[in-house]
């Protein structure tokens, strides 16, 4: 068996690397093709069906984007990041805290979980009227909506992660002399981390959407607010440019969390 085996592994190193490169190249090409197709359909539909001032062409949007990037958009991005950082932190901390409490105390779990399960399907947007009355038009509206949206995914995933912990590992830790606190820091937290990080990513996704919605109707700054501002001036090219910026920044934020996930979960063959 061994001579054949040796041959295969030798071949695999060079041919395998070349094939890997080819596959990577192909996936990049397909991704680019997807974007090109969307841009083509966009300009076609814009030309055939809508007035250019309603649906500006890709070229016009790129022009608007250049103007924005040279000017005031920095302040809007900063405002949005501040909203997101505040709301996301609040939501994640609440979600984590509730999940840990639910995992630790069984009675509390029975009390909290139904409340969460009823609130969870309610979109953050549904709370806008109440948030507006409570906070007025201010940064508090997007922050509240972001925190609300971010709480649930991380809560659900963290609780799931803690519950899925292998009982055998807990027994192993106990028989090795670990105390309750040591088990929490050295077994429960690292064991649940893959789920926590998945929850953090899902939370960021919904938080990003809640941010735009909150700023759109209830904020006094930020990218969402700026969309409404330009809509009132009927500057649809600028509106589209900001939507593009929102998409790209959201992608970058998720990529950052994905990187963190890979870094922290090198031990986990499924995640890496």
């Amino acid at each position: 068996m061994s001579p054949a085996n040796v041959k295969v592994t030798h071949g695999a190193t060079r041919a395998g690397r070349a094939r890997h490169l080819l596959l990577a190249l192909r996936s990049v090409l397909v991704s680019v093709a997807g974007i090109v197709a969307v841009v083509l359909i966009w300009s076609l539909v814009g030309r055939l069906l809508a007035h250019p001032s309603l649906l500006p062409s890709p070229v016009a949007v790129l022009g608007a984007l250049r103007v924005l990037l040279a000017g005031e958009i920095g302040a809007d991005i900063l405002a949005s990041i501040v909203h997101l950082a505040a709301g996301y932190s609040i939501g994640v901390v609440i979600g984590l805290l509730l999940a840990v409490l639910c995992a630790r105390f069984e009675n509390l779990d029975v009390f909290i979980e139904p409340v969460i399960e009823v609130l969870r399907p309610i979109s953050a947007i549904a709370w806008i009227p109440i948030a507006l009355l409570m906070f007025g038009v201010s940064e508090s509206v997007p922050i509240f909506l972001i925190a609300y949206a971010a709480t649930f995914p991380i809560f659900v995933n963290t609780l799931d992660g803690v519950r899925r912990l292998d009982r055998l590992l807990l027994n192993a830790a106990r028989s090795l002399g670990a105390s309750g606190n040591f088990i929490v820091t050295h077994v429960v937290i690292p064991g649940a981390l893959p789920y926590v990080l998945t929850g953090a990513r899902l939370s960021l996704g919904v938080a990003w959407m809640a941010m735009v919605a909150g700023e759109l109707v209830g904020g006094d700054a930020g990218l969402g607010w700026r969309i409404m501002w330009y809509q009132e001036f009927f500057a649809m090219d600028k509106v589209m440019a900001i939507i593009l910026v929102i998409g790209v920044l959201g992608f970058v934020a998720d990529a950052a969390l994905r990187g963190l996930q890979r870094r922290l979960l090198g031990w986990n063959p499924v995640e890496s």
Binding site: D166, L168, L169, A172, S175, L193, W267, N268
Partner: peptide
């Protein structure tokens, strides 16, 4: 000390 049938090693260590 206990040695488990399914190893029960900590996968993150």
């Amino acid at each position: 000390g206990v040695m488990f049938q399914d190893y029960a090693l900590f996968p993150w260590r």
